[in-house]
Simulated scan of single mutants.
Amino acid sequence: MKKVVTGLFLFLSLLSLSKEYNIGDKITLKIEGAIDKSQIEKALEDYKISSLEKNKDGSYTVVFTTYKVGENEIQIGNKKLKIDVVPTIEPSEKEIYDALSNPNNIYIENDYPHMGILATIAGAIALLTAFFMHLVDRAKNPYIIFKKGMTKVTETNWKEKISLELRKYIDSVYGTNFLGGEYKRIYPLTEQDIEFIKSMDYLKFAPNRDGDYLEYKKRALETVERLRKEKKNSV
């Protein structure tokens, strides 16, 4: 709510001005006479000035706010302006605040650890999310997939399984199409790696041809470990 106090500087009517204002009200005062801007600022230094402008007729218009309850006396030049400021709450409402001064009515946050509980829940959610993302990353990791597949190699399925897991790993890491039978040599694959994979193909289509599946499994594992090491060193 904006209220206006209009007075003529050096006139007696300014002294007789008396109105009530609420705390925080903007008070507009028009000042006429032999006074400059610095004198007005000095007179209102204990108040919050929102604006102070000089008008075309030489007068000043100042807008200010006070938060001091009671009679405010402002000395401007050789004149005094009295402004009554009243609180915005009724006496009955004040009793509410008086009750809060009683230590028994003080809210102690430590007695209600809501923030601590919320922080714990948030931390648990973050931890579970991180753990879940870790599991997802592991599930997509070509090396983890290869190792898991190799644990399922048996004496009866090794001719197909070792070749399948090795080619899946190479395609996942290097973007090749070994699963499709396109054995394109790409660094760090060697000619010996290509020949080893081809030999596994021969075994798949030669059921009467035997071999030590543990040796083939060992070589496949060693091949992948070497490829991982060389890829890491090339980064």
Rank of each mutant, 00 (worst) to 15 (best):
M133I: 12
M133E: 04
M133D: 02
M133T: 06
M133C: 03
H134A: 04
L135R: 09
V136Q: 00
V136C: 01
D137W: 04
D137H: 00
R138V: 05
R138M: 02
R138I: 04
A139D: 03
K140C: 02
K140E: 05
K140G: 01
K140M: 09
K140T: 01
K140H: 07
N141F: 05
N141R: 07
N141Q: 10
N141S: 14
P142F: 06
Y143I: 07
Y143T: 04
Y143K: 11
Y143C: 07
I144G: 07
I144L: 13
I145V: 11
I145G: 07
F146L: 08
F146H: 08
F146K: 11
F146E: 06
G149N: 13
G149A: 09
M150K: 06
M150S: 01
M150E: 11
M150N: 02
T151D: 15
K152L: 15
K152R: 15
K152N: 15
K152A: 15
K152V: 01
T154G: 11
E155I: 08
E155K: 13
E155L: 05
E155G: 14
T156L: 11
T156W: 05
T156N: 12
T156M: 00
W158D: 13
W158V: 04
K159S: 01
E160G: 08
E160L: 11
K161I: 01
K161F: 04
I162E: 06
I162N: 07
I162V: 15
I162W: 05
I162M: 01
S163F: 06
S163T: 02
S163Y: 04
L164A: 11
L164E: 14
L164F: 14
L164S: 12
L164V: 03
E165R: 12
L166F: 05
L166P: 07
L166K: 02
L166T: 13
L166D: 12
K168E: 13
Y169G: 08
I170Q: 04
I170C: 00
I170H: 07
D171H: 02
D171V: 05
S172H: 03
S172L: 12
V173P: 06
V173W: 10
Y174F: 15
Y174C: 03
G175N: 07
G175V: 01
T176K: 10
T176C: 09
T176W: 03
N177M: 10
N177D: 15
F178A: 13
F178H: 15
F178P: 12
L179D: 13
G180Q: 10
G181E: 03
Y183N: 12
Y183F: 15
K184E: 12
K184Q: 11
R185Q: 14
R185K: 14
I186N: 08
I186C: 05
Y187V: 08
Y187F: 12
L189S: 08
L189G: 11
L189W: 03
T190N: 00
E191L: 09
